[in-house]
Design a protein around this nucleic acid. Structure first.
Lengths: 330, 330
DNA sequence: GTATCAATATCAAACGTTTGCGAAATTTTT
DNA sequence: AAAAATTTCGCAAACGTTTGATATTGATAC
């Protein structure tokens, strides 16, 4: 069974296609009686406008592309939710693609976006990006790009991101408040810029505001590494009493070791992490964390996108602040 | 800057549009030398075919719609991964929508699918579906629908799902092997058909193969409920020594209580769950689980979809079997 | 009775592709 | 050297919609 089209409706009603088209969109030129008839028939014939024809004609896809490393990541998931919510309000649809952190996929996805003439794209760079060139080309074609979370240094781009330094600083404050004797601070893959940023901010803050506190800085690029690290470190004579985890991944490893060694939290060991909140709430007591909300980031990104679409160029870097969520682990 | 089109290329090269079109798709009618020229110019002008024009002309969107309750759910995430992988191979793109388990969203998403003339849709019913009517209409329009995971009873539809009963039975086997004195079996929202299925299968199996084992059956429709349940039940005189969780959600609650009460796993309490594997691996020891792989389900669903697209009607219900993954919790 | 105006509906072009068919141009066959 | 076959390309229609321009009414004004 073939799809209902304007032509079909027009034939049935002995009207022209344009009249039917205008009737359906409530154009003032059309008599109320005609509109009624058209609407009735359209309803009964299950008319659904052909999105492709519309987009071809109007040259406006009203589709926004989103590239995330992985949709299963809760941070990106909440980012998408926010963008989706706003998009719905503004009558845009979303095309969501995963890069799996691989530059190749990223390029492929961008290609699909271009072929679908998206009205704009939200992009989170894969961890080892190469071709910013392609993004410049997007801008030349007047396809606005809003980078989020993992953003390029080049300041000709529009970017929104979490205040990574602030997150680390807030956590450092809390660590100082606990006033432990020995602190362990765990960061992710040292090659990632986010690890460096957070580490620098954390370390700076600690050294200026608690210079005498004993802090060990270590890196772990996987949960397993973090787990092993704790297992080894914790057997030493002077056990650490506070641990800071840069990310959920680190936290997961730490918590496995904590369970294995049956360490009491928070009495023997205080734990604090940076997270969106899902993982910390899996444990008892709940882990205290500095919240990085993908949701708010999404809202902000959307505002920037609209500004870009309407007002032309706006190169700015905006950040979303973080807040501390009290669990029972510190 | 406007987009490059076939017309533009044709003008530049003093060729006709059709020649350019054919050259780009390696049509045998076109001379090799012309092809070379066309390709070169297309390359340098960053030609990207307009997906809308193509789809309008060919009446084939090569887009498949997917409706899941939530993309952040790891089960559905792996389902999507599988479908995505296969789609890529077969040159289909995906349009992914969330229903958030609400019938209204489900209908809206289907509308968008229809307007985008998707070639087929994978649908996971929202937990309290109403209108199967709309799916029948899709089929009338020759848009194949493959239901997955949560499927309708109506057997005019194509469906794939996990072997829910088998999962529960495998878990029951393991529970019997542990040979505990007192077993607690926790199931989800009693209103959901999946809860009923798993419970019936589990209970049947227990009653036939270990009729003398003491089993308590309870329902919890959230993590919190499960946690409270354990807290209350565990204080009783004869503590249970084995617990079966129907789902990750239940497991999370159980594990919080386990941590709070400092119960030793598996010595004091054996734990087994049904899961895709992420959550069980967050703990130490790792929780043993019966794996329900969204990935395999996705592969199967895709095969069914292709069969539907090519071969017309195929009403069947296929299931993916489950397997037991040994952790250290039982 | 002619000019003006408003209301209503139609015409026709355009968006960028694909593709059946036919037309040159070139080569091969006889 | 003419006929036939082959290679290479262009014409034009179609997909379903939107929209500026235009046509057809009938009513109102002078």
């Amino acid at each position: 069974m073939t799809n209902t089209t304007l032509k079909l409706l027009a034939q049935q009603l002995q009207l022209s296609i344009s009249t039917v088209s205008r009737a359906l969109k409530d154009h003032p030129d059309i008599a109320a009686s005609t509109k009624a008839k058209v609407h009735a028939l359209a309803q009964s014939m299950d008319y659904e406008p052909n999105a492709y024809a519309i987009q071809l004609r109007t040259q406006n896809s009203r589709i926004l592309g989103v590239i995330v490393p992985a949709i299963s990541n809760l941070f990106y998931d909440s980012f998408i939710s926010a963008v989706e919510e706003e998009s719905r309000k503004h009558d845009y649809a979303l095309m969501i693609m995963q890069s799996s952190n691989q530059a190749e996929n990223e390029l492929n996805n961008l290609k699909i976006f271009r072929q679908n003439r998206v009205s704009g794209v939200f992009a989170c760079l894969s961890s080892h990006p190469e071709n910013l060139e392609v993004y410049h080309k997007m801008n030349e074609r007047e396809i606005p790009v809003v980078f989020f979370d993992i953003v390029p240094k080049d300041n000709r781009f529009t970017k929104v991101r979490m205040a990574d330094e602030r997150c680390a600083i807030i956590a450092a404050e809390k660590v100082i408040q606990r006033n432990g004797k020995k602190v362990l601070a765990l960061f992710g893959d040292p090659g990632l810029s986010i690890s460096q940023k957070r580490k620098n901010a954390f370390q700076n803050f600690m050294e200026t505001y608690a210079p005498k506190m004993h802090v060990t800085y270590l890196n772990a690029s996987s949960s397993k590494e973090a787990e092993d690290l704790i297992q080894k470190q914790y057997s030493k004579t002077q056990k650490f009493d506070t641990v800071f985890c840069m990310t959920d991944e680190i936290l997961i490893g730490v918590m496995k070791a904590v369970q294995a060694l049956q360490i009491k939290v928070p009495s023997e060991l205080g734990i604090i992490t940076i997270s969106n909140g899902f993982i910390p709430n899996l444990y008892h007591p709940k882990i205290s964390y500095v919240e990085t909300s993908g949701f708010e980031l999404g809202k902000l990104a959307f505002v920037q996108m609209m500004a870009n679409i309407k007002g032309g160029k706006t190169q700015t870097e905006l950040t979303v602040d973080a807040k501390y969520i009290e669990g029972g682990s510190l």
